[in-house]
Amino acid sequence: MIPLSWYLTLAAALFAIGLYGVLARRNAVAILMGVELMINAVIINLVAFWRYLQPTGISGQVFAVIVFAVAAAEASVGLALIISIYRRRNSVVAEEMNLLKW
């Protein structure tokens, strides 16, 4: 059987890769893709802890479903913001979005 630590290591690696994408990418859409990877790592952790610690309970799955809903909301609003910025500034590069920079 698969030890729990394998799942946690996979989730940690996925989270670290997503974090690198968020920090290093210039394109805002690519940054959002990194965020999606990080959210997936979190959901793997939630489901793995549910299965190993409380498999007959339901709260772990409910938690994962709520995180799915939040991820959908985050993606739609983030992409809407990016498209709106692209219309005004003709750019999706994160470091050029400096209108509010002092």
Partner: peptide, 18 residues
């Protein structure tokens, strides 16, 4: 360039978090 100038630090931070 698809990555910004701070990508080595980002890689370091990501590796440290892992």
């Amino acid at each position: 360039h698809q990555t910004n100038s701070q990508w080595p630090i980002s890689a370091l931070v990501a590796a440290a978090s892992f």
